[in-house]
Amino acid sequence: MAPLIEIKGLTKKYRIGREVITAVNDVSLSIEAGEFVCILGPSGCGKTTFLHLVAGLDRPTKGDIFVKGLCINKIKEKDMALFRRRFMAFIFQAYNLVPTLTAIENVSMPLMFDGMVKFKRDKMAKELLTQIGLGKRLRNKPSEMSGGQQQRVSIARALINNPKVLYADEPTGNLDSKTTKEIMDILVSRVRQKGVTLVMVTHNKELTEDADKVIYMLDGRIQKIVDQRNNTVQEFIHEEVEAPPAAESPEKIAVEAINEGRIAAEGAV
């Protein structure tokens, strides 16, 4: 069976000031339908960027991403919206609920963009929220809920349109360990139950226990892939190491010093 997602030679470079940073460096990977894949790595290893690229939120510098044989980095932004709406869902570390909307309204939002009428989508949202234990919080706004509750709303929002793939970026990063477990239980059970492919980024090794595959990333490259179903390990050896910068002129060092202040604030160009 052909993999659901196939990634070939994916590379993403950022220009920050005068410096070019390679966040994702020539990554190739395939993800099967229904798999739970964890991307594990320290912060700054490029795993979030990788997730954004795979989810079609960002465009790669080089390489291709095929979802069901469709090269998503080459389709138009307008079609991308449809792809995101019907095919995938995203869970953020910071929940990213719309603060003015109630739990129901937040959850039903993807259906709203899809043009479903209000009473119908609200009914679906209500059912889903009740199933994940938020039956008493239906009319609350995000500011009236705890972090765990907000993340549950965000999970409901991700699941409401029955996505094929669910991307999660450190979904428990802002939560305490008890809530983390609750959220992970909900997430994993839902995903397994519905056969949804889950691609989750984390730096917490404990969260990878339930995963089918764990992908270890470092410096924008895959180090190894561990398949926990049959305990096979696939190691990647990267021969060429990027040469350290040559002796730099005082001028260049000065420019970099200026740029450093802007790195955090400005983000990618």
């Binding site: 995101r84 869902a89 990213n96 719309v98 603060p99 963009f113 349109n161």
Partner: peptide, 16 residues
Amino acid sequence: TREIGVMKVIGATGAD
């Protein structure tokens, strides 16, 4: 800004 981005991730088109 962030809200707009989230909406787009969820599936809003530019036109929406």
